[in-house]
Deep mutational scan, measured.
Amino acid sequence: HSHMSHTQVIELERKFSHQKYLSAPERAHLAKNLKLTETQVKIWFQNRRYKTKRKQLSSEL
């Protein structure tokens, strides 16, 4: 499990705020920019979407 830097997370968050789903080319581009693997980016987005979904569910209770 590799640790992401604060800067990388900020960039991922910024991208996520604009779009929740990335196409393969977008993911490849973002990964390259942030010096991450595409898998890391993919998993981060999956986890981030899951967290957002959970938060929405709990706020509706």
Rank of each mutant, 00 (worst) to 15 (best):
H1W: 08
S2C: 15
S2Y: 12
H3E: 10
H3W: 13
H3A: 10
M4N: 01
M4E: 00
H6M: 11
H6Y: 10
T7M: 13
T7P: 04
Q8C: 14
Q8S: 03
Q8I: 07
V9R: 10
V9N: 04
I10C: 15
L12I: 01
L12T: 04
L12P: 02
L12S: 01
E13H: 04
E13W: 06
R14G: 03
R14M: 08
K15C: 15
F16A: 03
F16K: 01
S17Q: 13
S17H: 14
H18I: 10
K20C: 15
K20R: 10
L22D: 00
L22Q: 01
L22R: 00
A24M: 05
P25T: 14
P25S: 15
P25R: 12
E26W: 01
E26Y: 02
R27H: 02
R27D: 02
R27F: 08
A28G: 04
A28L: 09
H29A: 12
L30T: 01
L30V: 05
K32W: 06
K32G: 05
K32A: 11
N33Y: 13
N33W: 14
N33F: 12
N33T: 14
L34I: 04
T37K: 02
E38M: 05
E38T: 11
T39P: 04
Q40A: 05
K42I: 07
K42F: 09
I43S: 06
W44R: 01
F45M: 02
Q46S: 06
Q46H: 08
Q46M: 11
N47I: 13
N47S: 07
R48D: 00
R48C: 07
R49C: 06
R49V: 03
R49S: 02
R49A: 04
Y50A: 14
Y50S: 14
K51N: 08
K51T: 08
K51W: 13
K51I: 11
T52G: 10
T52S: 12
K53P: 09
R54C: 15
R54W: 06
K55G: 15
K55P: 12
K55T: 12
K55Y: 05
Q56M: 08
L57A: 13
S58T: 11
S58E: 12
S58R: 08
S58C: 15
S58F: 10
S59M: 08
E60M: 08
E60K: 07
